[in-house]
Amino acid sequence: MIELTDIKRSFGGHDVLKGVSFQIPAGQLAVLFGPSGCGKTTLLRIIAGLEHADSGTIAICGRKITGPGIRVKPEERKIGLVFQDLALFPHLTVTKNIEFGMARATNKADRTREMLELTHLESLRDRFPHELSGGEQQRVAVARALAPGPDLLLLDEPFANLDATLRCTVRRELVELLDRVGTTSIMVTHDRSEALSAAQTLLVMSRGRLLQSGSPRDLYERPSDLRVATLLGDGNLLDCEIRGGIATCCLGTVDAADRSDGQAKLFVRTEHITLEQDEEGEGTVLGSAYFGHDSMTDVGLPGGKVIQVRESQERTSNPGSTVKARICGPCTILD
């Protein structure tokens, strides 16, 4: 279990972290997600001790490692880190790389064999990093970080250097591996599908602040604000009016029981709108982009408003046809 309280950091007058707090329960894989430059890598380096925080505290399993007057050195934190560019030692073999962190371990040989098995690297044990493929290098980096048995594993964009086809497989393997090992982990990524698919806890960051945290589904379907909403996926922002617990917008009405009356914005994901062929409908299909597994259709509404709708492959509407658009899933009312 790791707990961060009000971590702040600025570089040359520019606030990179403006007070970040969260906790992650033991054994979980948390994903820190946000656009490039939002401060997530800095946060990771602060947790690892490679960067210092201007203020705030960090505790692992109740042991305070960063705080006023406390700055445990990275080499004493028992925190593993998988670097974005992996940072494998080029002059050491796979085995030596993995053994590096277990300087004084008594059961070094056993532990190394265990890690090699776990990451399916037995046959490559005597190779040098430059003789391995990208996926293999990535497994070595994870094995090396896990070998000393850290209390916490940090992964900084671990799939950034892999090509798209490999990335999915490697990611699934890694999630399974971490699940099996049971180490508390924080992974940093700016890839939304990676974040949504891998995380048990998802933390969304933007401009040095933690915007929202929770399960991926919660955050996707009920984002707390527009930035979280758009960071996690496409959607339409519609004007609506709330009266008596009902919100009315151009696509119909939705429940707004806990909201007070007045003007508001309604965020509807593109796949939560359906289109029906209807001569009476108010929408006109303007065009459609085909993606294979689905397609994105632009629909023009009265008053010039254009919405985007994700349609499944078999139900793609023809351009020029008249349609009726309806909300068919969860949506979020934003202020």
Binding site: E75, E76, F83, D85, F100, P148
Partner: peptide
């Protein structure tokens, strides 16, 4: 630097 950082996180003084 990252190589040295990596060594640090692996407990090397």
């Amino acid at each position: 630097r990252p190589l040295e950082d990596a060594a640090r996180t692996l407990g090397a003084r």
